[in-house]
Design a protein around this nucleic acid. Sequence first.
DNA 1: TTCTATGCAAAAGCTTTGCAAATCA
DNA 2: TGATTTGCAAAGCTTTTGCATAGAA
Lengths: 165, 165
Amino acid sequence: MLKKTRSAPETRRGKISLDDCVAAFDDYLRRKDLRVTAPRRTVLEKVYAIHDHFDADDLLVELRRKGLRVSRATIYRTLELMDGAGLVKKTSFTDNKVYYEFAYGHGHHDHLICKACGKIVEFKDEVIEARQESVCRRFGFAIACHSHKIYGFCPACRRKGVDMS
Amino acid sequence: MLKKTRSAPETRRGKISLDDCVAAFDDYLRRKDLRVTAPRRTVLEKVYAIHDHFDADDLLVELRRKGLRVSRATIYRTLELMDGAGLVKKTSFTDNKVYYEFAYGHGHHDHLICKACGKIVEFKDEVIEARQESVCRRFGFAIACHSHKIYGFCPACRRKGVDMS
DNA sequence: TTCTATGCAAAAGCTTTGCAAATCA
DNA sequence: TGATTTGCAAAGCTTTTGCATAGAA
């Protein structure tokens, strides 16, 4: 449903290397008295390679394509762990499925989503960020996190003249 | 998972009466060459009565409680129609289920959600609204709609000293 | 060796769909 | 009457779980 489009790796990945990620995950596992295993490493490496928004099935397909066999159950279990470790972040769009995105060393941002082609662009606006704090104050809430998605039509689709109704 | 808490009916319902809703839905159905039926009316009336955020099952339970029997399939089908008619709006939170909220004559707004008790508060901030336009312009997107959810802890839960970690 | 993680298949939860019977126009 | 809608049950999807076996420490 949502197509995958990725920003340049350098943009999303920043200065974080795969080794840094592996180290961070291993540390997390040890701190939690969990085991460092081959399937967990395999999943982490693939998540690092995909980097952008994906769902559990995308990950399974990508792994299979490379001849790597990790069960669906392990994928779900590992993504859950990686979420706890802060390596990925769960998100949901308009369909009712869970999506993940690489999150380690990748600052907070929000999403601009093309309704025609599914392209996802990240943005961050300081004015909006600051304003959210004041909204919370207004209602006495202590802010924890937020999800801000703007749906619209990307430049390419507009040029192609897609139906925007 | 998400508990239901409703704002005062006057706040959400505004000046819209049930009759207005019925008329709007009937008009929509006729325009689409669809039929005005008893189950559709029953669902509409219950949605109007609930008014706040609910899922298909909430609706079914509420109907049963009043001795009204409409099948689950019809509830899903009718909510889909009401979404098309602009009477309800689909939303999703962190679990992967579809939620609905009454939308007719109820202006656009965003949500502040308590992570402890599930309370949902609506807000609208003009600065944020305006700023979104400029984010879109920056990326060449034509904005269609947006979903902005801020998660945090409500005043009551903070007072109770819930675990905010 | 001991205890956790994996894989498989079954189960679970939400939503959709095929089809015969009921209902609307 | 003729076409649409309903209800039921079955199917579909995504995600979770129980359990025997494989694997880490």
